[in-house]
């Protein structure tokens, strides 16, 4: 693997990885960390990937797995922190956030704010499905592969997420 090919790989996938990381984590700081982690893992194992599938699906799968590992670790720390002997760890716990995404708004206005609030209120995997479908144009099969869920789950998540956004749009009018 040449340095150039790894650079090219990062150049092509970094934006998509960050966007997915932001949908999963809900905040820019965690998204940055997760994206760096995922891209580094992908670059280190780039030799094991050689064109048999869309590289985006491959690196998005790495991103989702890294996110799940972090969530599991945070949950475990929280569980341990909930016991009296581990109370001192509570301050060090950092859970995947439900805060609104800290992405820079491209458009102001009430509709934009209503949509962003509705997106922030979605479950992380629902946001991820929307991102991969609406901005990456991935098929249901590709999204299912990235998220490691059945195709039917992708369909249900997209449907639920869009209805939630539709409701938010209608309520703001």
């Amino acid at each position: 693997m040449s340095k150039l090919s790894a650079d090219e790989f990062v150049r092509r996938t970094a934006d998509g990885v960050y966007a997915l990381a932001l949908r999963l984590t809900g905040n820019a700081a965690d998204a940055w960390d997760l994206a760096q982690d995922a891209l580094l893992r992908a670059v280190k194992s780039l030799d094991s990937f050689r064109g048999d599938s869309d590289p985006r699906t491959w690196v998005y799968r790495i991103t989702v797995n890294a996110w799940k590992n972090r969530a599991a670790s945070a949950a475990e720390r929280m569980r341990r922190a909930s016991t009296p002997l581990d109370a001192g760890e509570a301050g060090a716990v950092r859970l995947p956030a439900g805060d609104p995404p800290a992405d820079v708004p491209l458009e102001r206005g009430e509709a934009a704010e209503a949509v962003r609030r509705a997106v922030a209120a979605l479950e992380p995997e629902d946001r991820a499905c929307l991102q991969l479908r609406e901005f990456d144009g991935l098929s249901y099969e590709e999204i299912a592969s990235a998220l490691d869920v059945p195709v039917g789950t992708v369909k249900s998540r997209l449907h639920r997420a869009r209805l939630a956004l539709a409701k938010a749009l209608e309520e703001h009018r």
Binding site: A111, V115, R162, A166
Partner: peptide, 13 residues
Amino acid sequence: ASAAFKKHAAVRS
């Protein structure tokens, strides 16, 4: 909903 998501919720890297 699809159009609104694309219009208002794009991520800037």
